[in-house]
Design a protein around this nucleic acid. Structure first.
Lengths: 197, 197, 197, 197
DNA sequence: TGCTAATCGAGACGGTACGTCTAGTCTTTTT
DNA sequence: AAAAAGACTAGACGTACCGTCTCGATTAGCA
């Protein structure tokens, strides 16, 4: 199905046609994969899905909403739990970079961030999503605090922010291929500091 | 002058007319200021500058090129030199946030990053610019290393990257109003680490 | 209605909106009437009709197609039937000149001929139209042949060609105000010849 | 020379440089020959002639003026003098059709007529030129009148008009390849009429 | 002999129009 | 009654020419 969306797909009456929704989602992914964010338009998605634009607008009020949905459909990256905060953070970043690099996720998220720069709604949705992720990453720190590995007065949110920032910037500047050493060094500075002992 | 570009501005002949260039730059700034990135179009700039579109395309082959130029025209943020790396970095970030918050620079840079997500050329130009800035910020670290304040084996580029990443993310998520405490905490983690002593 | 196209004219749904088509046709006529062929642009028509350019291009692929349509919408000139070939031909020319002079038709047809000089498609469409008209005018001759008034071996097509040529040239050189005497003389030469008896 | 216009052709001082004029004329011909009227622009001619646009505008205020000049540079068609008006007229038309068909003249004249439909100046110049030609062709008739072959009260101008009209229409509708028989028939109707004896 | 004025190629300028693409909205048709 | 899908207005895209203007160089002809 999907892109190949049944040539003559029809309305199934007075309720949402899940075939159409699927076809649209899959078309959106395909367009993003093949033409990138530059070629990603509602128009292009509609063409590819053999759907009318209003059908898309009915269910996703903006490009951003569609991006969010297809991003969330991707399977998520796992946060390791090694018992060591440095390994946890570095491992998380390595997984995240690999995930962004090897699946459409990276492109999708990148697009979403770009979209949020000119679309209020996208910005809101992204902010909400970021808040969630922040607390998620923060859990790595909280666990370490519970273990006594990390100082109790450390603000987990700010650390999560630093980690997420590092990831974002690499995503946005196309540097997801960075070697592990750099990631480990960056994480090391956050955990152990850069001052002379 | 400028945006209001003298009603009767004319060509000054067979070489570039600086009046036109200025009018275009200033119109671009004004459009960005008043309509944001969403409303920033070559067409709008041309209208505002009372310039022909081809005149813009002659000198700036893309929206990104124009953005870069107006960004570089802004006066730059200064990097403090207090003799203490933590104060230097925090001060730099505070200055940068204030600069981005209080001048059009923030909006421009934000737009440029967004543009780079769909425009190859913009990405290249932004990468080059980032490289420059990275080494610039790195100097704060190098100075501290020279003072013996920072360990000699610390990679200044990676630290600069962490700092820039933090700044980018706050810019892109509209969190430039962050209180100083958060900035200081983030910088503190980078300099002193988060592990228990 | 029409040119003044209801300020808020909207789509009427998933089929061609005749209101829009009418507004476009009428705007095209108005532009041609007021600004002449020189000022006749798709852009101007769209502006005047409060239509989007793509709506025009959707239905009329070229300026020529639009010209043809508005020409054919004009009411046609009638061919008299007096029982005398000379009066028929002269009357036809007089009617045609008056029609071209007093309605937008002349301007439209002139424009179409001009357009055909640089647009292949326009040329084809004009050729087809001319063929039709030729046979139409030829009928005057055929009738006279049936009456025995005109020699049986006369090629009606060629006579029609002579008549149409005379009309075209007067149209294209802005000499539609010619006095009847000249028309009658020209027709007289064709019917009775110029040689001495 | 000409199109290949001396790479470094320069001003020769405070007077018109005939080399430039020639290069422009020749470039205009070449452009018309190769790209047709549709591709004929002052810009294209200037490019081809390695001339500045103002140099063209200085000497030919409009496209039409340039067209007129290059048309007049073509060698003219000769009007035969056989002692028989019918042969003279048919011969003239045959020569003219061949001339228009086999040299750039046809294209040039066609363009000029088209141009005159939207350019007042072109129309004026064309009218003047037509007047000249009319009297020229009229001479064939005058000669025949002098011989007593044609009735004394025949208006030579109107006959010339009929002949020129026939030629124009064939030029404008791309029917210059017409067989001699059709031309002879058309001329025959003008000289001997179409009525039954 | 040196100055003035016109000419040249070059090309920038403000504009207009081109024909295409996308954004969102509206309304008919279909189920 | 709601879904689907084409048509619609609006306007930006990047390009081609328009006709005008200014530049710097070049040179003829007057002083």
């Amino acid at each position: 199905m999907g892109e190949a969306a049944a040539r003559g797909r029809k309305s199934i009456g007075a309720k949402r046609n899940p075939e159409s929704a699927d076809a649209i989602i899959e078309a959106a992914e395909a367009v993003l994969r093949e033409a990138g964010y530059a070629g990603f338009s509602i128009e292009a998605v509609a063409r590819r899905a053999r759907a009318g634009k209003p059908t898309i607008y009915r269910w996703w009020p903006s490009k951003a909403a569609l991006l969010i949905e297809i991003y969330q459909r991707q399977k998520h990256v796992e946060t390791p739990d090694t018992g060591n905060v440095e390994d946890d953070l570095a491992g998380f970043l390595e997984n995240l970079f690999a995930h962004w690099r090897d699946t459409p996720s990276g492109n999708i998220y990148r697009s979403l961030i770009a979209e949020a720069q000119s679309d209020e709604a996208a910005a809101a949705v992204l902010a909400e999503y970021s808040r969630e992720r922040r607390s998620h990453t923060g859990r790595i720190i909280e666990r370490a605090k519970a273990r006594g590995e990390v100082a109790a007065d450390v603000d987990a949110g700010i650390v999560a922010d630093l980690i997420a920032s590092y990831a974002w910037r690499h995503l946005l500047t196309g540097r997801l291929g960075e070697d592990e050493a750099a990631i480990r060094a960056a994480v090391g500075y956050i955990t152990r500091g850069i001052l002379t002992a």
